[in-house]
Design a binder for these strands. Structure first.
Length: 267
DNA sequence: ATGGTAGGAAGCCTA
């Protein structure tokens, strides 16, 4: 049986619900995970998505900032959220797809971390590092669990040399500093997660999911970063049959600065 | 080296 999952930082789901519909019609993923919905809990625009076959929606939003949601053709159970850093932020939501082999799905929006990569002077960067520490401990526990698991989302870190347009120029830029990329390496070393995107695109090839709004011509400059990720347990990673990064979506009318990413699995 | 754009909320914060 096929199972496809997409992830997209939508940067306001109410403003861009038309783009969400367009993506769902075009790609028909079984599941779409959204981040930065910027939509208070209870105000998620579910109706147009239910009309096109996505009848199961887990929303976890708050006013103004952050916000995550899972939009699915398939039913799920056990919606939960873990409050990393105990701030009450809407940055994680999880559901389980039941079946012969249940699949636990986690959708994350990790703090961006501000501009200054120094936790002593920038509390937003300190928050990001604490979030990563807690994610490492949580992942260590996950690694002991049996069964399939998937983690997707805007992790706001581009870990590898070719996950950014210039490794040298971005070493001091939040999202690609050694302190962050080392933290992500520790999370991966916990053993729960495998990088599905890089199973399909070799590490010596550029791979981006985000281009700044501030560029004059994002496509010509092509100064992108891979901030969005799809991770799974080892067995599911072995069964991943395809990857798509929807670069064209960055050029849609009134776009998000992130593009959708989708992986397919044979389960 | 700097400032550039975008969204939400409400007259500034975050990305």
């Amino acid at each position: 049986m096929g199972f496809s999952i997409a992830t997209w930082n939508i940067n306001s789901v109410r403003l861009r619900i038309g783009l969400v519909e367009r993506l769902l019609k075009e790609w028909q993923p079984d599941v779409l995970c959204l981040q930065e919905t910027k939509c208070p809990q209870g105000q998620f625009p579910s109706a147009p998505l239910k009309e096109i076959g996505y009848g199961h929606i887990a929303e976890f939003g708050q006013k103004g900032y952050h916000g995550v949601a899972i939009v699915s053709k398939r039913p799920f159970t056990a919606q939960t959220s873990h409050d990393f850093c105990s701030k009450g932020d809407s940055r994680h939501v999880s559901v389980t797809f039941e079946g012969a082999k249940p699949i636990e799905l986690h959708n994350f929006y990790i703090p961006a971390g501000g501009d200054e990569p120094d936790p002593k002077v920038n509390e937003k960067f300190a928050h990001k590092l604490q979030f990563l520490d807690e994610l490492e401990a949580w992942s260590t526990q996950k690694a002991k669990a049996k069964g399939h698991r998937i983690l997707v989302g805007d992790l706001n870190i581009a870990p590898l040399v070719h996950d950014v347009w210039s490794h040298k120029d971005l070493l001091k830029v939040v999202s690609h500093t050694p302190i962050e990329t080392d933290a992500m390496k520790r999370i991966m070393a916990a053993g729960a997660w495998h990088d599905v995107m890089r199973r399909h695109v070799p590490e010596d090839q550029k791979l981006y999911t985000w281009w700044s709004y501030r560029a004059k011509d994002w496509n010509a400059a092509d100064r992108g970063r891979r901030l969005d990720h799809i991770w799974t347990d080892a067995a599911l990673a072995e069964r991943s049959g395809g990857l798509q990064v929807h670069r064209d979506a960055r050029g849609w009318q009134q776009p998000s600065d992130h593009v959708p990413v989708m992986a397919r699995f044979d389960i």
